[in-house]
Design a binder for these strands. Structure first.
Lengths: 204, 204
DNA sequence: AGCCCAAGTCAACGCTCACTTACTCACGAA
DNA sequence: TTCGTGAGTAAGTGAGCGTTGACTTGGGCT
């Protein structure tokens, strides 16, 4: 009723609701009016906290990316794992977003186009960490003679692209009534292929 | 000057200009007014030919998909090629779109989200043919004992996803001032990895 | 007590959107 | 010659958009 009912963090609420709506309907598909209604406030209240709709969107993206300490999570992995194990852990991490944070994947799917200025942030903060990690791990193993002398960057970029595409396009696939594929099946099927193709000596 | 200056196919012109604009700016980012201006006609003229903006968009998608006889193109390949050669040809075909028909890739990138009803058409008409082809080729080779007993559908889906992602995200990458990767380098680097991982006997 | 200010509200503004209406005109067939 | 029709136009329509300005309210500081 009153104008300032509680000092609860309204700004955080707006950011949260905006995240849900932007993820579900995209930037152009989400009017400020709807965000406001979802928060139980007026549009003007939103502009009290955020300069513009674009700034709010960028904040949503930045906040979403910051929620995951990807570098830290990746660095915690064992240094002495085999290639397959390493790739498996990365793929499991990416695919786990489908359950732990589907909004992140939706936002990424919406931002595949170059036009979106926030796309750069998502690529930089989410994709690149994975790629850099794999790149480094591959380089180390190539130098150690465990992995064939492939281009580590290209390999990492394509590997991450494959897993990301798999995670992002789930929605479209089940819209087509195609068989839904489980993450575990993808990993069990594809990681050995990649690892076998990369390793210096054929496994078994 | 006159109302009907020429009987040249105005409908085709509208479809063509709409394709350019939708590809460049997406559905929501392309007002009918702009399409009309680009064609040198009024909005009403467009509605004379297309019931609604959505119908026009769907027609754009359908027309774009129909421009490529993907099934035919794939079927023309040699049946006795090795796995690596087969995958290479498919990847080359997909990556060639970046030069022969970049609009197709842009439209696909815009339609990764499930909301877009046209996304289904693009998946069905563009992605699926590639996947089904690889799936069939893999199945044949698995039965012949040339390829290890992987899941042909999952493998094909992920392979196509990898190549598509590579083709679609080129725009974002060069916006980040990252090194631009050439299609040939991707193929030279990745096809042997995949093939080596798939083939029954390790290659050399 | 008095006052400031963050955080709201309401009501609009100016603009753009997809789409419509009423009308015009060239042109080919009867 | 007349007339119907397809293809176009100018000029809207109401709805919805992002954004703003003037005003209100209530908690915390002096």
């Amino acid at each position: 009723m009153s104008a300032a009912p509680k000092v609860t963090n309204r700004k955080a609420l707006i950011l949260s609701e905006a995240t849900h709506l932007f993820a579900a309907n995209g930037f152009n598909g989400t009017p400020v009016r709807i965000i406001a209604r979802q928060c139980g406030v007026t549009e003007a209240a939103i502009y009290r906290h955020y300069d513009s709709k674009e700034h709010l969107y960028e904040e949503v993206i930045r906040n979403k990316a910051a929620q995951h300490d990807i570098d830290g999570q990746l660095a915690a992995q064992g240094q002495d794992a085999g290639v397959e194990e390493m790739l498996t852990q990365v793929a499991e991490y990416i695919l786990s977003f489908a359950k732990t944070d589907p909004e992140l994947l939706q936002l990424m799917a919406n931002s595949t186009r170059g036009n979106d200025p926030a796309a750069a942030v998502l690529f930089q903060e989410v994709r690149l960490p994975f790629i850099r990690f794999i790149q480094a791990e591959l380089t180390r193993r190539i130098d150690a003679g465990q992995v064939r002398p492939v281009d580590p960057f290209i390999t990492a970029r394509c590997f991450v692209g494959m897993v990301m595409d798999c995670a992002m396009s789930i929605g479209v696939w089940q819209m087509l009534n195609e068989t839904t594929i489980k993450s575990r099946d993808v990993i069990c099927n594809n990681m050995p292929i990649f690892a076998r193709g990369l390793e210096m000596r054929p496994v078994s």
